[in-house]
């Protein structure tokens, strides 16, 4: 069974055309994926949809890495 982190990385890679094998847990996802604020909004919607969670934006302030975002997702499941 894949972990939240694995699924998150696969999801982000698929949406933004990245190679999931090149994405690491501690990568800055904004820099690594090269996404702007509009694309970040899309990613949040994808994540909420995939994991069936709600992620209030204010809880995501300061979240930069895939690992930290995966933790937030798990906390809301």
């Amino acid at each position: 069974m894949s972990t939240t982190l694995d699924t998150l990385i696969r999801l982000a890679a698929k949406r933004f055309g990245a190679d999931p094998a090149q994405l690491r847990a501690e990568d800055d996802l904004f820099e690594r994926l090269g996404i702007d604020s509009f694309q970040a909004v899309e990613l949040i919607s994808d994540v909420e949809d995939e994991f069936d969670v709600e992620l209030p934006d204010y809880e995501l302030q300061g979240i930069k890495t895939f690992a930290a975002l995966a933790q937030k997702i798990d906390a809301r499941r």
């Binding site: 909004v41 949040i44 919607s45 909420e48 949809d49 709600e54 209030p56 934006d57 204010y58």
Partner: peptide, 8 residues
């Protein structure tokens, strides 16, 4: 809160 919500 100023938070955003998705379509669902």
């Amino acid at each position: 809160s100023g938070r955003s919500i998705n379509a669902k």
